[in-house]
Nucleic acid binder design. Sequence first.
DNA 1: GCGTAAGACTTACGATGTAAGAATCTTGGA
DNA 2: TCCAAGATTCTTACATCGTAAGTCTTACGC
Lengths: 225, 225
Amino acid sequence: MGTQAEPRKLLSRERVLRTAIKLADESGLGAVTMRRLAEELGAEAMSLYYHVSNKDDVFDGMAELIGQEINEAAAGVSTHDGGWKAAVRQRILTAREVLLLHPWMPSLLSIRNTASASIIAHHDAIVGLMHDGGLSYDLIHHGLHALGSRALGFAQELFDPGKGPVSDETISAMAAGLPNIAAMLAEVAHDDPASTLGWCDDQTEFEFGLDLILDGLHHRSSATS
Amino acid sequence: MGTQAEPRKLLSRERVLRTAIKLADESGLGAVTMRRLAEELGAEAMSLYYHVSNKDDVFDGMAELIGQEINEAAAGVSTHDGGWKAAVRQRILTAREVLLLHPWMPSLLSIRNTASASIIAHHDAIVGLMHDGGLSYDLIHHGLHALGSRALGFAQELFDPGKGPVSDETISAMAAGLPNIAAMLAEVAHDDPASTLGWCDDQTEFEFGLDLILDGLHHRSSATS
DNA sequence: GCGTAAGACTTACGATGTAAGAATCTTGGA
DNA sequence: TCCAAGATTCTTACATCGTAAGTCTTACGC
């Protein structure tokens, strides 16, 4: 009997948050406004406030859900028998894979530094792996600080010293004021543009830094015990 | 000739940026709005646009000035004779001291990841110190990535696992879902609340992470050469 | 039918960045 | 001294944002 209009799916906190994540995935965190979010849901902005207390609550909810995604992904990966270092490494790289699907997460976490339950749980798992490996809680504590955002799979890069191929002109132009960086760029010449998580945050570079820290922790653990 | 009204100091890009920094120091980055900034300068919001192209330009200018402050502070510190590691460490800790005076810098840098000239110069200096110390440019390049924001004196902390004294109730409350973190907190018990740069970013923790990375670079350098 | 409460909507306000153009002030040449 | 021509500042206005307050709609037990 004719068009029965759209089914008008009900709103819910879950649906709001999922839509917010989809919106951020597609158009960036800046596109997540209450009005745009409502539009995406076929509702009005103020209607969201019945399910969500305010925008920060939306942000926190998004982080919580991504944290769950990380934990689920990690649950599906067998705990290696290669020692705590391999296990922690694995967990963190798994987290990173999830974050690569949601590149806005780093920004979100820097805006809202409240700890969501699922992200704390992720850290709890890391602490557990380290402790099982024989590290003291004191060392683990220092280690968590040393890892910082790396525990979640990303590193804050301050700028992008070599996005794309560095032209020779660029190098000679900066050679005057920045002799050392110029020399480095001339020699290193980033060639793998397979980056993405924000800013020049290569998988290779990420793993290098991660291993540097894990090795350091391992060394300090062996030396002490 | 009575009161001659206020002298009405002239606006200038310099004055706008300095005032923005002062405002951020006093009331946080969120207080830096064009109107508030204008008010502070005894002018109208739109008048600023003659000296500054937009708000992002203000942010970039602030970062540039802080970068200069870092470089000036570093210039006043003698380059040690303790090898490249001590020299780099010194430079980074000096940068950190400046950042501690401007706790909003981390947030600013995460919002505007454009590279200001002075901050690039700071990195150039670090590259120089490392190269003088015999590190290969390739290793230096990796090292810079590994350092990330730490090169400027801060580390992104995701949340604050132990701000202030951790109450026993808190620990027993979380013991159920987070056995490992609970156990760690029970044992470690943060006791030095002399933190500040954002979130639980102790000087001690910062230096621990910094040394972990520098030691790792040193080790990888020795092994290769 | 009818109250009742959950859920969605309307309207409105203050804050923000900034476009467009008017007003004022400064300065140098006639 | 006067006046044209920048240089600088101000006025007004608009779009967008988060959200407070209150109203309408719908579903359902009686």
